[in-house]
């Protein structure tokens, strides 16, 4: 490679990276982040968006450039140069994707771990008397949310979710509340055990960036900690029949006080104030 073309490459690659990184950092197509998972997710998203933009724009640039540069002049009837391979180049473009992939893989592993996805399911939710510890739990992300210590685990709010065609039911064992709407206090780690009565459904809150299938016969667990008060949609994300599109509910994230009010009003077994 001559110095000139090296310089040229450099001059092209730097802005490409700049644009890619700028896109990743500044264009945010995601809804607001309302759980501890969501902010970690967005971090991953920005990185992937940057890498993806760099690769895509670079590729499109390369392609359009060669289409313009090397298009056939009308009078030219000859062939191009018979270059059949180039080992250094081929090693280069095997190595670059490999490195990118390794980086992305390790990084997303780290993110997943921080989301609590790597925690063994055997321990999930065992501190709740309502869960038989012999029961096999089939997984789900956030089984043991971010920053959950032994102590915070004990403070988890435990909710049982039942999905059926075409609704979600939320059962709060503590106050024996059954509700069609999910009410949770801000900053409180939530632990949900989910099971379906008929077909497969999926519990999805886009603002929390979590999704877990709700499967008949195989209970799954989902943990999260909401961080912003507000009302967010709960969406069923697995085709479950004609009214799949209408199978929605709401999660109401509210301040501790309001939550307690709601709880008090609906609770069948009044809890003793601590």
């Amino acid at each position: 490679m001559s110095t000139r073309s090296a310089l040229l490459t450099f001059l092209l690659v730097v802005p490409l990276f700049a644009i890619g990184i700028w896109i990743g950092q500044n264009i945010n197509p995601l809804p607001i982040d309302a759980s501890t998972n969501a902010s970690v997710y967005d971090e991953l998203f920005r990185v992937l968006f940057s890498i993806g933009s760099i690769l895509f724009l670079g590729f499109v640039g390369l392609l359009t450039y060669s289409l313009f540069k090397f298009r056939r002049k009308p009078e030219d009837k000859g062939d191009g140069l018979a270059i059949e391979d180039n080992l250094p180049l081929e090693i280069l473009w095997t190595a670059i994707p490999t490195i990118v992939i390794l980086f992305v893989g390790l990084y997303s592993y780290d993110i997943y771990d921080r989301m609590g996805g790597m925690q063994s399911l055997e321990h999930a939710g065992h501190n709740h008397e309502s869960m038989v510890s012999k029961e096999r739990i089939w997984g789900g992300i956030g089984s043991g949310s971010i920053g959950s210590t032994k102590e915070s685990l004990n403070k988890e709010l435990f909710i049982e979710v039942t999905a059926m065609q075409f609704a979600f039911l939320f059962h709060y064992p503590k106050g024996d509340i059954i509700s069609g709407e999910l009410h949770v206090p801000v900053g409180q780690p939530i632990s949900m055990r989910m099971e379906s009565k008929d077909v497969i459904h999926a519990f999805w809150v886009p603002e929390f960036r979590i999704k877990q299938d709700v499967i008949p016969g195989q209970p799954t667990i989902l943990n999260f900690t909401p961080t912003k008060a507000g009302k967010y949609p709960i969406i069923c994300a697995e085709l479950c029949g004609p009214y799949h599109g209408g199978m929605r509910s709401t999660v109401v994230v509210e301040e501790q006080k309001e939550y307690e009010n709601w709880f008090e009003k609906n609770s069948k077994t009044p809890i003793t104030k601590t």
Binding site: Y41, L44, A202, P206, K211, A237, E238
Partner: peptide, 13 residues
């Protein structure tokens, strides 16, 4: 991006 588990749990389906 879909292949990354933490990414996919949001956008799956």
């Amino acid at each position: 991006t879909l292949a990354q588990v933490p990414f996919d749990v949001h956008v799956h389906d």
